[in-house]
């Protein structure tokens, strides 16, 4: 192929990918609005439509990720454009797995769809989709392990947060008939704890692998960089949450507050810190992710 042909082929592939990505974002948007309709109507059919919508979107999103992998000839998590897409995909998949274990509870899907749509739109509207070769600093197996486990844990925390919010707002008294949105009872709530228990070791590994990568790349495993420090804040908040779950009086409302605070910290680590670094003009080693 001549260089001109290669450029034209790459531009064509990227156009197809962008159309598919916009369609996926739109699909999450449709799910979100079905969720809003479900919230207003509490019609079980609308709830089922929401879950089916998310299943179809998961399929489309998987195709998109496979397409991007083929296009770049590498796993797509090298920049914020790609990792936001991973984040939305992981969150949706985790939700669909958890939902398959509940009896006719569809409500958290509304929040998951909203967060996934926001992540996709942020990626599409603010980041460049152009596939760049991997810079030397990112060529490390630790980096790949770091990104995969970090986003896996973030996705799980998104679902835990959604379950927590739904429980706090629409809980049904124990031992009664299902409420407007199904059995949103203590058994359903236990999923918040189970999900955090599942995500926490992965978040821990994400921090360790990030430190191992930094040790190889910069010679320092920890620099107290704002992004590193916020990841430690997120880890500590979830560690506090797990401890409060074992303390009698603290395992209800205080634990719920901590779970939601953990979610806020996670968003701060992932996106908010980029904004903070720019706002306060703080030097950061993680500028490639900003």
């Amino acid at each position: 192929m001549t260089p001109e042909e290669i450029l034209l082929r790459d531009a064509l592939l990227l156009s197809i990918e962008l159309k598919l990505y916009w369609f996926v974002a739109l699909s999450y948007g449709v799910c979100f609005f079905i969720g809003v309709a479900y919230l207003i109507s509490s019609n079980p059919g609308t709830g089922k439509a929401l879950t089916w919508g998310l299943r179809i979107t998961a399929f489309l999103h998987t195709l998109l990720i496979l397409f991007r992998t083929y296009e770049g000839m590498r796993p797509p998590f090298q920049n914020l454009y790609e990792t936001l897409s991973w984040f939305a995909w992981f969150a949706n998949m985790t939700y669909l797995y958890a939902q398959s274990r509940w009896k006719e509870v569809h409500l958290p899907g509304f929040l998951v769809a909203g967060i996934a749509m926001a992540a996709c739109l942020y990626s599409l509207l603010t980041r460049s989709p152009v596939i760049a070769p991997v810079p030397p600093a990112l060529q490390s197996p630790w980096y790949e392990a770091h990104v995969i486990t970090a986003f896996l844990s973030y996705a799980v925390f998104v679902v835990s947060f959604s379950v927590e919010v739904c429980y706090l707002r629409f809980r049904t008294p124990p031992g009664t008939t299902p409420g407007m949105f199904g059995f949103i009872d203590e058994g359903f709530r236990r999923w918040t704890h189970r999900l955090v228990l599942f995500g926490f070791p992965f978040l821990t590994f994400a921090i360790f692998s990030g430190a191992a990568w930094a040790n190889d790349a910069w010679g320092r495993y920890w620099s107290w960089d704002p992004k590193e420090t916020w990841s430690l804040i997120t880890w500590t908040v979830y560690a506090i949450y797990l401890h409060t779950k074992t303390i009698g009086k603290w395992k209800d409302t205080p634990a719920s507050v901590l779970n939601m605070l953990g979610f806020v910290c996670m968003i701060m680590t992932f996106l908010g810190i980029n904004w903070l670094v720019k706002l306060l003009n703080i030097p950061s080693l993680h500028t490639y992710a900003v």
């Binding site: 704002p226 804040i233 500590t236 908040v237 401890h243």
Partner: peptide
Amino acid sequence: SVYILVFLCILFLIGTI
């Protein structure tokens, strides 16, 4: 442990501001 971890979180936060 919880009180100390909360206090450490506040110090971490100060370190990022």
